[in-house]
Design a protein around this nucleic acid. Structure first.
Length: 643
RNA sequence: GCCGCCGUAGCUCAGGGGUAGAGCACUCCCUUGGUAAGGGAGAGGCCGACAGUUCGAAUCUGUCCGGCGGCACCA
């Protein structure tokens, strides 16, 4: 800044000098009118700022345009879309109060407070008004207000939620107010220079309820969700993705593929049909084998257990409302919502030596929980489910190595299903919890040490741990982009204490073991739901409930087709026969729609030559192979991983 | 649980104060056809449940049940 000059360094390394301070807009114009037109914001020292920011010192500046890839531009657009949404809603329905409206993955939302609910018709009107506001090309101007003045202002115009938000901001922080047209909103920014820059590639998607400040004790607001993109093409691509995702919805495929159903008489409980149950058993046996190799001991514990045990474990106090109970012999029993207390009962039989640790006790444990009705979702969130549960009883010293061993096993299993990018979350102590703070310090510390030892990257999930200990969550994503916790690992110093679990140490004295609660699939039901969506119903051969259909072209091949079926079954393949009096086109179409991985077609020629025409799902053409060769190939491909 | 929307044949959906319709699937008949729908006929519904309004309710109103989308919850 010599001689009052301001040097601006551009991303290409070139430097422009100016006599006096200038706005980012001026800078863009100075470089070229095309750039000025495309400019949306600035990146000053790597941080996004308004395009109108005054540049009054030497600095490195990057001009952000609509053509820039990456999420930052999208976040900017979406955040503005939320403001335009709020402006439109206020214009059309002035009695509405605005609250917050952030950008989110794929879009944005805005929460409104209003007596009368918005209707789908209102959505259309609001969207139309949003387009008008964009066309008005309203300048978006940032101002900074004193906090108390801002609170008074918003109170005076009846925006009590806004006033409350501002009042909760620390007094020494500046209050940024963005004005566009008649609409003013509290906001940190940055924003576009004008509403026109938002463009028209946005769409309002859905109406929903949402609690004020995310707390169910508060009143419910009305949330409007929308999506926004750089251009029409991206918007269309997104809408198309949504349609594709709907096609692989496990609820739809579950019905179409005759895997399972749900009905009113057993809400949240799955009726497994033959094909779905075959899939279920295949998975269970696969995992059972993995567990055997990993030195787990499988057990089975009772469904109905006296409430005394749940009181002792602490579950009764915390989850009583979500437990199914029944009275008998003047005692109260609960359908088990978890397996851990039962596993401790097995552990407590006899005397355990430190030589027995780590003891890995596994169960495909059938559990029931009275989940809130609004939480139910297909077979992903149900009231009756089976956990691939296990508890590792070990010493404190063994936590790290057991965590490493478990994470390796989990990733190995996930890899067999093609899940390679797994989100890991670390959830620490919740507000309501059992155990002393010192115990939590210890358990969180040891889990952190253990996860660090695995080298996996993870994100923090504060306050989301189980009531007895911190946990790792292994999260998979469904077709519609929703995250589901599947695997978990939880460190527990509390239950062994409460249920008096002991082992005899090297010193001959009693010691408390640590329990590691862990699951890989999480629940069989949820994992199967995820798999259906992941594969869009087109399972790999080893998982497919119906692996092969033998279909005939004429009834002259019926006897041969029966021989083929027998040969397939003798090799352990799941196969069936289609001898119907239908054209081969019809049969191909039907079995393709049913997503049968392999169709073996037999006509007169094949019968005479002892060959078979192999048509694989997803391929346009078929291959004629020697029967033995065809079967060998299928058998090889149908091998269960790890077996 | 809370907010909004929805509930008609096995599935997808149309209709809408005067006793219910399509396509696919299903059953039967004809067709023996070489790799994604051959032709014909037939059967199938207490219009989610209960109450109310009405001469009359699948249709209007209310309550409940269930589903869907969010929110909250998730040992």
């Amino acid at each position: 800044m010599e001689n009052g000059k301001i040097d601006i360094t551009l991303p290409d390394g070139s430097v422009r000098s100016f006599d006096k301070a200038l706005s980012g807009q001026d800078l863009a114009m100075d470089i070229g009118p095309g750039l000025a037109k495309a400019a949306l914001a600035l990146r000053i020292d790597g941080e996004m700022k308004d395009l109108k920011t005054l540049l009054d010192r030497d600095t490195a500046v990057e001009i952000v345009t609509i053509r820039e890839d990456g999420d930052e531009v999208l976040e900017l657009l979406r955040h503005d879309a939320a403001h335009v949404l709020a402006e439109a809603a206020k214009e059309l329905y002035p009695e509405t109060q605005v609250t917050i409206g952030p950008s989110i993955e794929n879009g944005f939302y805005y929460d409104f407070a209003r007596e009368k609910p918005f209707t789908p018709d209102d959505l259309e009107k609001i969207e139309k008004r949003m387009h008008e506001i964009v066309d008005r090309d309203e300048q978006i101007v940032r101002e900074e207000w004193a906090r108390d003045a801002a609170v008074d202002y918003f109170k005076s115009i009846g925006e009590h939620y806004k006033a409350e938000i501002i009042a909760s901001i620390p007094a020494d922080q500046p209050i940024g107010i963005y004005r566009q047209g008649e609409f003013q909103d509290l906001c940190r920014g940055p924003h576009l220079p004008s509403t026109k820059k938002l463009g028209h590639a946005f769409k309002l998607m859905k109406l929903a309820g949402a609690y004020w400040r995310g707390d169910s004790r508060n009143e419910m607001l009305q949330r409007i969700y929308g999506t926004a993109w750089r251009n029409e093409k991206e918007l269309k691509a997104y809408l198309h993705r949504l349609e594709e995702a709907e096609r692989r919805d496990h609820r739809k495929l579950g019905r179409e593929m005759d895997l399972f159903h749900l009905q009113e008489e057993a809400v949240g409980m799955v009726f497994w049909h033959e094909k779905g149950w075959t899939l279920y058993r295949t998975l269970e046996n696969y995992l059972r084998h993995k567990l055997e190799v990993a030195d787990y001991k499988e057990v089975k514990t009772p469904q109905l257990v006296d409430r005394k045990l749940w009181e002792a474990s602490g579950h009764w106090e915390k989850f009583r409302d979500a437990m199914y109970t029944t009275e008998s012999d003047e005692r109260t029993f609960a359908l088990k919502p978890m397996n851990c207390p039962c596993h401790v009962q097995i552990f407590n039989q006899g005397i355990t030596s430190y030589r027995d640790l780590p003891l890995r006790m596994a169960e495909f444990g059938s559990c029931h929980r009275y989940e809130p009705s609004g939480a139910l979702h297909g077979i992903m969130r149900v009231r009756g489910f089976t956990q691939d549960d296990a508890h590792i009883f070990c010493t404190e010293d063994q936590i790290t190595s057991e965590t490493e061993i478990f994470c390796a096993l989990l990733l190995d299993v996930y890899k067999d299903f093609g899940f390679t990018d797994v989100k890991v979350k670390f959830s620490d102590r919740p507000e309501v919890r059992a155990g002393e703070d010192e115990t939590w310090d210890k358990s969180e510390g040891s889990l952190r040490e253990a996860i660090d030892a695995t080298g996996l990257s993870y994100s923090m999930n504060p306050g989301e741990g189980a009531f007895y200990g911190p946990k790792l969550e292994f999260v998979l994503t469904d077709a519609i982009g929703r995250d589901w916790q599947c695997g978990t690992l939880q460190v527990d110093f509390v239950l062994p204490e409460r249920l008096n679990a002991n082992y005899i140490g090297e010193d001959g004295a009693k010691h408390r073991p640590v329990m590691l609660h862990r699951a890989i699939f999480g629940s069989m039901e949820r994992f199967i739901g995820i798999l259906i969506e992941e594969y869009a119903g087109r399972f790999p051969l080893w998982l497919a409930p119906e692996q092969v259909v033998v279909a005939t072209i004429t009834d002259e091949a019926d006897d041969y087709a029966r021989e083929v079926l027998a040969a397939l079954k003798a090799k352990g393949l799941r196969a069936s026969l289609d001898l119907r009096n239908e054209k081969i086109n019809y049969k191909v179409r039907e079995h393709s729609l049913a997503k049968v991985p392999a169709l073996l077609v037999a006509g007169k020629r094949e019968a005479e030559e002892k060959t078979i025409s192999v048509r694989r799902l997803g391929e346009k053409h078929q291959k004629v192979l020697d029967l033995g060769e065809a079967i060998d190939q299928l058998v090889e491909e149908a091998k269960v991983p790890g077996l």
